[in-house]
Design a protein around this nucleic acid. Structure first.
Length: 341
DNA sequence: TTGGAATAGC
């Protein structure tokens, strides 16, 4: 019987990560008709609805839990926090019957992810004053917060603390966050120092450092590191390509980005090319001032551009203060953007 | 069972 409910919990989890609300609801009614009742399962339902973005149903499922535990509360908090309902999340947080390190970290992380750098810092301090010890996840969150705010000094201080606590170089995600932090602040040499002192590196580590160089306009070194990544036997994932192409856009690396796209899609067997990659390419061309090429690509690519892709193209046109012929092009795409949005 | 993995222009 408990076997059955753990299988259902896993299925619910799948629905959440693929945002398959319809299937989640279906499972929900199956659970009800089978008469399954356990807090684990009820918590999984709240989580599924939260992950699918249906907060009303998450709240409803929460309110029906017969005996709520600390997991139930944290899952609800996370549903509010991750959808950006910071006030709701905060109110819940201050009433929470039991508050643990996960609740604190979730709240700190929510502020960081939505650009409230000060609030995340204040809460991080309060948490320690109230006697809760941060874990490495909390520190990784704080490093992300500093990356988001480009707060080089604060991030360095946290880096120091991380070293004192011994969370680096041993813990992989701490290293990954630090690389992201230093390169977001333009401190690529420090990002490389972190990269080199890591004991273990995964695909995220490599793609973060490759992106970091691209983001800062250092195409040669980015390309070099990308080669090393392949030599290490790591295949770029779909996310890696989006990530690096986006960084190329930011760093103005038109040639590297274009070559990378061609290489990966042609040379990596079974690489899952999707519309997001084409959107990135359109964005890269647009930002590099190649508006006509971007438009050609939009018309010839094997996927319909997404609303985001169209918007980014329209933004490139607007940014370049188009005149003459290109004005027409702007009108067209603006129209497309409006239609697509 | 809950919080670390990502898709980043201001």
């Amino acid at each position: 019987m408990s076997n059955g409910s753990s299988t259902i919990a896993a299925l619910l989890r799948e629905c959440g990560s693929s945002r398959d609300l319809a299937r989640g609801r279906q499972l929900h009614s199956q659970i009800l008709s089978a008469g399954y009742r356990s807090t684990v399962l009820e918590n999984s339902l709240v989580r599924m609805y939260g992950d699918c973005g249906s907060l009303d149903e998450a709240v409803d499922a929460f309110s029906r839990i017969s005996s709520r535990n600390v997991f139930s509360w944290n899952i609800l908090l996370s549903a509010f926090a991750q959808r950006g309902h910071l006030d709701l999340a905060r109110a819940l947080f201050e009433k929470l019957p039991q508050r643990c390190i996960v609740s604190w970290t979730e709240m700190v992380s929510a502020y960081a992810q939505h650009g409230h750098f000060q609030s995340s810092f204040v809460l991080f301090r309060r948490m320690q004053l109230e006697g809760t010890r941060p874990t490495y996840v909390t520190y990784a969150t704080m490093i992300d917060s500093c990356a988001e705010a480009a707060a080089l000094g604060d991030g360095r201080a946290i880096h120091e603390r991380i070293l004192q606590l011994g969370y680096f170089p041993g813990i992989l995600v701490i290293g990954n966050s630090l690389i992201n932090f230093y390169s977001s602040c333009g401190a690529v040499e420090e990002a490389l120092d972190v990269f080199q002192s890591m004991r273990r590196r995964d695909l995220i580590t490599w793609s973060t450092i490759v992106s970091g160089y691209a983001w800062n306009g250092l195409g040669e070194r980015s390309a070099q590191l990308f080669q090393f990544m392949l030599l290490e036997g790591l295949d770029p994932s779909s996310v890696t390509l989006v990530n690096v192409l986006t960084s190329c856009s930011h760093g103005g690396l038109l040639d590297f980005g274009r070559r990378l796209f061609v290489f990966v899609t042609a040379e990596v067997p079974g690489f899952p090319v999707c519309r997001e990659h084409y959107d990135c390419l359109v964005d890269l061309l647009g930002r590099s001032g190649r508006l006509e090429e971007a438009l050609e690509l939009m018309e010839s690519m094997p996927f319909e551009p997404t609303a985001l892709g169209r918007m980014s193209f329209a933004a490139s046109c607007r940014k370049q203060h188009l005149e003459g012929d290109l004005n027409l092009l702007y009108e067209d795409t603006n129209y497309m953007a409006l239609k697509g949005a």
